[in-house]
Each structure stands twice: as structure tokens, then as C-alpha cells.
Amino acid sequence: MIGRLSFASAMALLATVPQAGAHPHVFIEMTSDVVFNDAGLINAINVEWVFDPDYSAMATEDLDVNKDGMLTTDELEPLAKENIDNLKEWSYFVYGRLNGEKMKWADVTDYGQLMGDDGRLRMHFVVPFLKPVDPRTSEFIYRIYDPTFYIAIDFVGKEPVEALGNKPQSCRIEVRPVPDPNSTEDTKAMLATKGKDWTPDQEDDFGIMFAQPVAVVCKKGAAG
């Protein structure tokens, strides 16, 4: 009698577990900077993320250690550190290609988080290059995305990517549209039916089709 109900409700609770939610689960609005050194070479990518309110609320719960109702950078540090440490395996979600070759980065050491007045968590980090890249002599493109599309990361604003430092006069930054918006929409519809536990096969690079490529384009031969 009573048993029947409690059994049913417990079962109902358990049964809901695998179907919870659909892809993507976290939404990030992003801006980025291409960082040039004094010699006009690119030596880092800055990334600035603004998380959706739901994730912000969930992730920062319990982090107000001194209970003053304010989330300081110090209090947010453990979360930022763990995220950055884990992101390392995923190339920090920053995928660069130099003359078509996949690039590797040095470890991120400059990062931080802060809570905005709008209740949205912000995170910034600097991805340092192993070796500076000369955009005038080589082709450099990068994208920022989650390969499994668990997290949707989108550029926002009119100029989502800016140059920092000594950018050569002949170079400009191009944020290109996604290659095939139609098939992207189809894929989004498909992903919406997938549960939280779903991940694409190891080989599948789902996120890339939603990611706008950023290219640094220079007029060839025109010195800085």
C-alpha cells in the first residue's frame, strides 16, 4: 500500500536519471584576443567566457566560503583551477592550425574567474604558444569549441576577436561564419534528442561544425 507508492516514486526517480537534459548543457558567450609580441608575432590567445546563469548558479553554489554573500576571485579560484587543469587534456578547447597542422600549447598559468553583477560567472585564461607564430609567413587559424558539444561556445558582439600588442599593419583578424549553417542546424536538432550521458564517438569532432574559425590574414610581402 504505502510501499507501493514509495516504490513507484523511487523507481520514477531512478528512471529519470538517464534521460535528463539534452545537448548542449552549458552555454558560453565568448570574446577572444590574439596577442602579438613586440616583433609582431603571435604568442598567445586570450579567451574570455561568460557562462549562462544556470551553470553560473550551479557552479558557484557552496563557494562563498566566508558566507558574506560575495564571491571573490579567491573563493572562485578552486573551481577555476580544476576547470583549467581538466581542460588541458582538451587543448583548453582552443584548437589552432598552423599551415594546416594541429598546434600544441604551453600550459595555461594566467587565468581567473569572477562573478558578474548579472549573476553570470566569467572566466578568462591565456593560452601561451610554445613558439611565436609569424602570420605574415604562415597561415594561422584557430577555433574555440567543445568537441562533444556538451558546452555551446559562441562569439558575441560586433568584434568578438581583437588584437592585443604590436599587430603588424598589414594583418587583420577575420572571424568567419560557420562553414555550413544548414547542416549545423540539422545536427543541433539531432543533438537535442540526446541525453546528458551521450557523447559522440571518440573520432567525431562534433563541436567544430558550430565553431567560427578565426584567421589572421596578412597581405603577403607587405612588411609590418
Partner: peptide, 27 residues
């Protein structure tokens, strides 16, 4: 608090729940 250390122990970092991590749950 049942979960977080008191203010006096501010040096103790709270353990971050795996569900909060951007990539934690998957790998």
C-alpha cells in the same frame, strides 16, 4: 553550514563537485 567549512577555516579549499566542471564529467 553542513557542507562548507566555517569562515575561520577559509584556507581550506572547498572540494569542487565533479558536476560543476566543464570537462570533468566526461573524462
Amino acid at each position: 553550514s553542513l557542507t562548507a567549512p566555517p569562515a575561520a577555516a577559509a584556507t581550506i579549499k572547498p572540494r569542487i563537485d565533479p558536476s560543476k566542471l566543464l570537462v570533468g564529467p566526461r573524462n
